[in-house]
Design a protein around this nucleic acid. Structure first.
Lengths: 114, 114
DNA sequence: CCAATATTCAACCAAGTGGTTGACAATCAG
DNA sequence: CTGATTGTCAACCACTTGGTTGAATATTGG
C-alpha cells in the first residue's frame, strides 16, 4: 500500500468497521473495549482497526490505568476535504461557482466553503 | 475488501496513481493510453487501475474504434462529500465553536452536526 | 487482406489485509 | 498478593492488491 498521508487516510476509511469507530468517536472519546462492543469480531481485530486509524492520524490514543481512550483527530479529514475541493465543482450546478470557489481559496477566503 | 459503495470509493482513492488519473480526467476525457503515459508502469497495470476506478463508479468508459475513452463521474465523489459533512464541523471556524459542537454532541443535540 | 495500434486477459508473484487464537503485560480491586 | 479486567502481540490463515510478462482481441489504415 502507498504510505503517503492522503493514501493512508483514504485506505483507513475504506472499511465500514473503521468508519463506524470514527463515527462513534465523533460523540466523544471511548476505550478500545467500548469501541469494540458493537462489532461482531474479536477485541484483537478491533485493536488492529484502531491501529490503522491511529497510523493514519485519524485518532489519538491516551493511556489511563488499564484503559486506552481514543479521540478523533480532525487533521487528516480536513486534508481530505481539501483534496475534494478540486472536484466539488463537478456536481454543483454551474462552473461559475467552482471558479468563484477556487478564486476564494486562492485568496484564503473560505466564506463559500459550504 | 468491503464491497459497499462508500468503501469502494475510498479504496479506489487510496492510491496515488489512481488519484492522478482522476485528476487528469478532471481536465476532460482521455484514452487509456493517454492516461498511462505519465506513469512509470505497464499499460496493463494502468488498465487495472482504471478498472478499479470504474468499479467504484468514479469513471465511465466509452468505446470508440480501438480506443476506450474515460470520463470522470462525480456521483461517488458527491457521496463521499456527503459522508464528510458529518465531520466538517470538527475543524471549521474556531475552537470555541468546536467546544460548543462537542458539548452539543454530548447532550445529544446535533443541530450543529453539519 | 495485412500489419500496426490500442487494450484487455490470464497466469504468476511478493507483499499486504482482515480475521482468528493463545500467550503476554499492565493495572486495578479486594 | 491474587485474580479479574483491558488491551496488545505473535503466529497463522485465506484472500486481495499491485505489479509483471506474454498471448489474445478488436479495430483501423493502406
Amino acid at each position: 500500500m502507498a504510505t503517503d498521508p492522503l493514501s493512508l487516510t483514504f485506505a483507513a476509511l475504506a472499511d465500514p468497521t473503521r468508519r463506524a469507530i470514527l463515527s462513534r468517536l465523533a460523540n466523544g472519546q471511548a476505550s478500545v473495549g467500548e469501541l469494540a462492543m458493537p462489532h461482531d469480531m474479536s477485541l484483537a481485530a478491533v485493536s488492529k482497526h484502531i491501529k490503522v486509524l491511529e497510523t493514519a492520524g485519524l485518532i489519538r490514543r491516551e493511556k489511563d490505568a488499564q484503559y486506552r481512550y481514543c479521540q478523533l483527530q480532525a487533521g487528516p479529514l480536513k486534508d481530505l476535504d481539501g483534496w475534494m475541493a478540486a472536484y466539488r465543482g463537478l456536481w454543483r450546478d454551474n462552473l461559475d461557482q467552482l471558479d468563484t470557489y477556487l478564486a476564494d481559496m486562492q485568496r484564503g477566503d473560505d466564506t463559500n466553503k459550504q
